[in-house]
Amino acid sequence: MQNSAVNQKLMPLHPNDNNEPLVKIRGLRFYRGNRAIFDGIDIDIPKGSITAIMGPSGTGKTTLLKLIGGQLRPDGGTIHVNGQNVHQLNNKDLYKLRMSMGMLFQSGALLTDIDVFDNVAYPLREHTKLPESIIRKLVLMKLEAVGLRGARNLMPSELSGGMARRVALARAIVFDPEMVMYDEPFTGQDPISMGVLIKLIPRLNKASQLTSIVVSHDVEETSNIADVIYVISNGKVIAGGPSEQVANSDSPWVRQFMDGQADGPVPFHFPAEPLETDILGN
């Protein structure tokens, strides 16, 4: 009895507790100038799941990933990753936390002065002392998974947009992180590589107990692989929960987004004055 009380004091919340979400966002607020990008949102990203974040362009999905990665500071609210408050960590602990995260940037963000192979090998070479022969095997395996083993000697400037993104994906997973954030992995992919990626993401998840956050506009494909879906619009979470529930929700907000209708409660336009006054003047 006493023993367990002591234990509880030492470990109030075991970070790897299965019920505890890996990423826990509470009351998050974030402003760009006077515009609220997030106005008090709560999101739970369960461990070992694939969570899709959807929403109209410009709602702040990329911003959300950067907040989770600690690259931006929120104006209010908290983000816990693995039980740690990301924005209260000191630099050293933040970098330690990032070692367990992989991120696929929307733009790829490959280093332009080294070739594809070196780009993918980069995190391994920076963080480990693995011999070159092992690095080679690891890198080629990841490149094989994204179908670009043959492109290893190309420079980033010689890649197409879709290829660059797949290289970036290989780089994001080369370190076998616990969590990967994919910012629009399917954009610019032909149906074949899209199909490969759609199989690859769940496979990685199963094989290595990964937690994935997928930001995507491809409603159908993403809801097929996602366990949990959040739809963000206008600074609020307009729907969140298990994917079937969200996909079949009859809320007009969600329906409009899922079915891709221009008219509905979700604004298609960036906030502006009415078209008539803008064009005709007052």
Partner: peptide, 20 residues
């Protein structure tokens, strides 16, 4: 490198771009 998010990319790989 900043404009093309290479520096942010390094940060997310837990590499300090200023030192590296």
């Amino acid at each position: 490198m900043k404009a093309t998010e290479q520096l942010s990319g390094l940060e997310m790989m837990a590499i300090d771009p200023i030192k590296r």
